[in-house]
Design a protein around this nucleic acid. Structure first.
Length: 703
RNA sequence: GCUGGAGUAGCUCAGUCGGUAGAGCAAUCGCCUCGUAAGCGAUAGGUCAGGGGUUCGAGUCCCCUCUCCAGCUCCA
């Protein structure tokens, strides 16, 4: 080994004494352009890893700074903040056992085993303690500890011991990875992966520098790292809430107390994030549903059930009209089926066996000779439609479609507004086809879904995932699974969607491809689902007659593009912030006469618009104009027309769009043509997920 | 289902130490009537989520249930 090393950054190289740290290397390379939290290092063998700034770099490495204001940098500083929080909890709650504390999107959490759950006051105390500790300028010091010593050090931390048991090859993965112990072991950090002759665990110690020049270990945690060099590099953080969370995410494991927090590269960024959360809260579909009189969820109705009020119903009608028209145009055949059926039907389908606890209980009817059940799915009915007579291969693919309302007795804790409901309507279809038709059918479904997202202004989905065969319980042969999984991936590729594979996340009866979108507070919800099913064709013993005159078993493709109309509606409301594009808006135009002597002209304007198919309403001059304009704006009506003497005389209107600038003296005929055209083309340009909620001056006044 | 938080008028909220319920907006009625985000006045509106308990007295304290919110788990 030489006494000097060479390190690189871009085209630059520099020689340093052996043992030089990443920070020294970056300084020497003049690579630092802003606040950094760590380094990213590529070794001569091409391995890339994140690296502590105070950690010596190996010879030949390429070093790059990780800036605080990047997602990568924030993850590191959030991880370090999680350690700081755990230290504060340990100080304030002696004996607390700590589990895992990873960074997550927009923040971090840490799980603790404590005798009593944290109260909101506890969180305030913990946060205050964190600020005290941060002011001590504690350093984060990395140390590799031999296995036995590590086990001894954390002997009173049963969760840490369990983590060590799970990764006993000496490689401490990130805390996220240890939460999923069956995750494959990835690359270990740097020197850590020396041959396993002396396995070590990485421990990070928070170290205080005392006034007398000595040092003191304040707190230590088993951790892969990396971390910021010092608590000084944590400029802004806030604890948000606490909640229970099962250890290792399993219901049969103890429930720990999780504290969520967020940390940012500056106080300003933290403030901006908190304001964003506040704005998101105002977009909640339940709040907007109330304010805009879209939906109603009275207690008398029951959890997870919705009433669509006239405004919401008009939006929903546009959704339903669109999907019905498109479904017919794409060769589907409509059916209608009932909401209840004999229990036996769900015995045959297997739903009772597999999902019985999530179905509403049976209705015992004395004179019916059998119990009846509310339907949790539409598929058995569509199969009965298929088997209404002998089917020929010439009819395949046979696509049966329905807007089918289903009822699932979801566990009480999971019901969530209209996003997770107990009664909801699927734009459900079942495609019966030959094996060789599956790919084309799935491709067709995905293309259909693409058109739907474009039409309703949701843009690109947050995630597209192909879910493959689950471990353990699943039916079907290896060949069937392999074929269907390949078909779905091929279809996803051909569709142009950037998809990911969710290994083992398929249904027991077949793989699926799902399209997800986010709600106002960033949670992902499955909207579109397309599934290949080998189960039901077997269970119902359905067949078609092939060109060989023999009976063959068809494949079934289940698909729902909105998924749940209620859920899609909720996501859309939040995405548009209640300000629907004109073609979807319940009330498209509101006409305001400036004084009641112009009520007549206002009515005339409204009649012209109504004749052109526009949903229009006149708000007569009982209140002041200012009051009625405010009302129209808070109702998010796309167009408000103001008419008075000059308009009546000239046959014009003054147009005040919800989005965009006002226009005066627009000829009525011109406006009617424009708005009718906009509605006919189902334009979504003026609104959308990105700009909804940021126009509308003074919109927040309605708080 | 589990953990925590919450529930007062249609909505948003106040309600002190336990002393019998309050505001703004909305609604209704009246006055006002030519110009781009709240005109003025009056009236009405409550089983304080429901039930039980403690107390002379409970919106307030205790217990149970329901519902909602966030998270965990689950999601055909």
């Amino acid at each position: 080994m030489s006494h000097t090393i060479t390190v690189h950054h871009g085209d630059a190289s520099v020689q340093l004494d052996a043992g030089a740290t990443a920070l020294q290397a970056l300084k020497a390379l003049e690579a630092i352009r802003g606040a950094i939290v760590a380094a990213e290092l590529t070794t001569t063998d091409g391995t890339r890893s994140e690296w502590d700034l105070d950690r010596p770099v190996p010879d030949g490495a390429t070093v790059a700074p990780v800036y605080a204001d990047t997602e990568q940098g924030r993850a590191i500083l959030r991880h370090s903040t999680a350690h700081l929080m755990a230290q504060a909890v340990t100080d304030l709650f002696p004996g607390a056992k700590w589990a895992i504390g990873p960074p997550i999107e927009d923040g971090f959490y840490y799980d603790f085993d404590v005798p009593a759950p944290f109260t909101p006051e506890d969180l305030e105390r913990i946060e205050a303690r964190m600020h005290e500790l941060a002011r001590e300028r504690q350093r984060y010091v990395r140390e590799e500890v031999p296995q036995p010593a590590a086990r001894q050090e954390f002997a009173d931390q049963p969760y840490k011991i369990e983590i060590m048991d799970l990764v006993d090859d000496g490689t401490i993965l990130s805390a996220v990875d240890t939460a999923a112990p069956d995750a494959p072991s990835g690359t270990a950090a740097g020197e850590g992966d020396r041959p396993a002759t002396e396995p070590t665990f990485t421990v990070y110690r928070n170290v205080r520098d005392l006034d007398d020049g000595s040092t003191e270990v304040a707190w230590s945690d088993l951790c892969r790292g990396p971390h910021v060099p010092s608590t000084e590099r944590i400029p802004a953080f806030k604890l948000l809430r606490s909640a229970g969370a099962y250890w290792r995410g399993r219901e049969d494991q103890p429930m720990l107390q999780r504290i969520y927090g967020t940390a940012w590269e500056s106080k300003k960024a933290l403030q901006a994030h908190l304001e964003l959360l506040e704005e998101a809260r105002k977009r909640d579909h339940r709040k907007l549903g109330r304010d805009l009189e879209l939906t109603h969820h009275p207690d008398e109705l029951g959890p997870g059930l919705s009433i669509f009020l006239p405004n919401g119903a008009l939006v929903r009608k546009q959704m339903e009209d669109w999907i019905r028209d498109e479904t017919l145009a794409r060769g589907y055949q409509p059916v209608y089926t009932p909401h209840v059926a004999k229990e036996d039907l769900w015995r045959i389908s297997g739903h009772l066996e597999n999902y019985g606890e999530l179905m509403y209980p049976g209705m015992e009817l004395d004179d019916a000779g059998a119990a009846y059940r509310l339907k949790p799915m539409n598929c058995p009915f569509h199969i009965l439609a298929f088997t209404s007579r002998t089917r020929s291969y010439r009819e395949l693919p046979l696509r049966i479609a329905e807007l089918g309302t289903v009822y699932r007795y979801e566990r009480s804790g999971v019901v969530n507004g209209m996003l997770r409901a107990r009664g909801f309507t699927q734009d459900d279809s079942h495609i019966f086809c030959r094996a060789d038709q599956v790919v084309d059918e799935v491709v067709g479904c995905i293309a259909f879904a693409r058109d739907l997202y474009a039409a309703f202004g949701l843009g690109e989905p947050s995630r597209v995932a192909v879910s493959t065969r689950p471990e353990g319980k699943s039916i079907g042969t290896d060949e069937q699974w392999a074929y269907a999984e390949k078909a779905l991936m091929e279809a996803a590729e051909r569709s142009g969607y950037d998809y990911q594979v969710d290994a083992g996340e398929g249904a027991f009866y077949g793989p699926k491809i799902d399209i997800h979108a986010r709600d106002a507070i960033g949670r992902e919800w499955q909207l579109t689902t397309i599934q290949v099913d080998f189960n039901l064709p077997e269970r119902f013993d359905i067949t078609y007659v092939g060109d060989d005159g023999q009976r063959h078993r068809p494949f079934m493709v289940h698909r729902a593009l909105f998924g749940s109309i209620e859920r899609f509606f909720a996501v859309m409301v939040e995405s548009f912030n209640g300000a629907f594009p004109t073609w979807l808006a319940p009330e498209q135009v509101r006409v305001l006469p400036v004084a009641d002597e112009f009520d007549g002209y206002a009515t005339e304007v409204a009649d012209r618009l109504r004749a052109a198919g526009v949903r229009v309403h006149v708000e007569v001059a009982d209140a002041t104009l200012g009051n009625r304009i405010r009302e129209a704006q808070t109702s998010k009506v796309p167009y408000t027309l103001v008419v008075g003497g000059s308009e009546a005389e000239a046959g014009t209107v003054a147009v005040r769009p919800y989005h965009g600038p006002q226009r005066k003296d627009v000829a009525l005929a011109v406006f009617v043509t424009e708005v009718a055209e906009e509605i006919a083309t189902k334009g979504v340009d003026d609104a959308g997920p990105d700009d909804a909620g940021v126009h509308a001056s003074g919109e927040d006044l309605d708080a």
